[in-house]
Design a protein around this nucleic acid. Structure first.
Length: 283
DNA sequence: AAGCCGATCAACCGCAATGTT
DNA sequence: CAACATTGCGGTTGATCGGCT
C-alpha cells in the first residue's frame, strides 16, 4: 500500500525558521489552537510541512518552554530517570517542566553522556565500564592457574601491565560499590563479560550472586593483593591513559563547563526516594 | 585574517503507535 | 477488519558558532 508522504514536498520550505514564520505560527495557534497540523500551514499561510510546524511549536515556540542552561538538579534528574527508563526522552521530559524531549536528548548526547563516560560509567547501563578491560575473562583465566604466581608473572609479560595494575586498583572499589550497583551489576560484570550487544540493552533485571560467586570473587581479590604486594605488577606508567581505555566514538577529552564547576556531583548516587513509583513513568 | 575543527542544537527523517473512516 | 490519516518518538543530520593554529 505504501505510506503517503506527510506533506507535499513541492513548494514546502525546509531549514531554519525565520522570525516572520515563527510569528505566523504563533499568531495562528494563539487564535485557533494547534488543531490539525496537516492543514495548519495552509491556513496559517506558511510554506511548511505540518510536521515541521508541530516540531517548531512543541520544541521552540511553546510559551511554557524554559530556555537556557540545565541546572545541576535537572541534570541529576535526567541521569536518574535515564537509568530507569533509558532513551524514553518524552517520558523523561514529562518530569522536567519546561524542557522538551529534543532539548533533553541533545543535552544528554552532548554533555551528560560524555561526563558519564569520563567518569567510567557506561551511559547505557549506568554501570561502571569494565567491558573494555574484560576483567572477568582475563582474571578468571589467571586465577584458575594452579601456580598463580608464575601464571601472573607470565600474564603480565603478555598483557598490558597497566591494565593488570588497574584491575588490582579497581577490585577493592568494586567490593564496596554504591548501593545502586550493589551486588547485581558489578558482580554480573565480573562474572560475565559485557558484549557490545548487551550494552545496547538497558538492564531490565538484576541477578543475585550465589555464595559460590562471592567466594570466588574474594579469592580473586586476595590473590590480586598477593600479586600487588609481591610487586609482580609494575606501577602505572606515566603514559598510561585511562581515558583511552574508556573512550567511545562519542567521547571527547575536552572538559565542559558544567563538570569544571565546583559542584560535587552525586550522580553516582542513584538513591530513589521511597515514594518513587516506576510505573508512574511508564506507559 | 583565514582556515580548520569540534561542539552545539534546531530541524529533519523514518518508523511505530494510535485514531478515523 | 482493513486501509488510510495523523501524531508522537527517537535517531541522525547539518548549519552555525567559537576557539585554536
Amino acid at each position: 500500500m505504501g505510506r503517503s508522504p506527510c506533506c507535499d514536498k513541492n513548494g514546502v520550505k525546509k531549514g531554519p525558521w525565520t522570525a516572520e514564520e515563527d510569528q505566523k505560527l504563533i499568531d495562528y495557534i494563539r487564535f485557533h489552537g494547534p488543531g490539525n497540523w496537516r492543514i495548519l500551514p495552509k491556513n496559517a499561510g506558511l510554506q511548511r510541512c505540518g510536521k515541521s510546524c508541530r516540531l517548531r511549536w512543541t520544541n521552540y515556540l511553546r510559551p511554557d518552554i524554559k530556555r537556557g542552561r540545565f541546572s545541576f538538579e535537572e541534570e541529576e534528574t535526567i541521569i536518574q530517570l535515564h537509568s530507569v527508563m533509558g532513551n524514553k526522552w518524552s517520558a523523561i521530559a514529562t518530569r522536567l517542566p519546561g524542557r522538551t524531549d529534543n532539548e533533553i536528548k541533545n543535552h544528554w548526547n552532548t554533555h551528560i553522556r560524555k561526563r558519564l563516560i569520563r567518569s567510567g560509567i557506561d551511559p547505557v547501563t549506568h554501570s561502571p565500564r569494565l567491558d573494555l578491560l574484560d576483567l572477568s575473562s582475563l582474571l578468571g583465566a589467571l586465577f584458575n592457574q594452579p601456580n598463580f604466581s608464575s601464571a601472573a608473572t607470565h600474564a603480565s609479560s603478555l598483557l598490558n601491565p597497566d591494565v593488570l595494575r588497574l584491575a588490582s586498583l579497581l577490585l577493592p572499589q568494586l567490593q564496596n560499590p554504591n548501593p545502586m550497583y550493589a551486588s547485581s551489576n558489578l558482580d554480573q560484570n565480573l562474572q560475565t563479560p559485557i558484549t557490545s550487544s548487551e550494552c545496547s540493552q538497558p538492564q531490565a533485571e538484576s541477578t543475585t550472586p550465589t555464595n559460590n560467586e562471592t567466594s570466588s570473587f574474594e579469592l580473586m581479590n586476595a590473590r590480586l593483593d598477593d600479586v600487588a604486594s609481591a610487586d609482580v605488577l609494575p606501577p602505572l606508567s606515566e603514559s598510561f591513559d585511562l581515558e583511552s581505555l574508556m573512550s567511545t566514538p562519542m567521547s571527547s577529552p575536552q572538559q565542559d563547563s558544567i563538570e569544571a564547576g565546583t559542584n560535587s556531583s552525586s550522580f553516582f548516587d542513584f538513591g530513589f526516594p521511597e515514594d518513587f513509583i516506576l510505573d508512574d513513568f511508564m506507559f
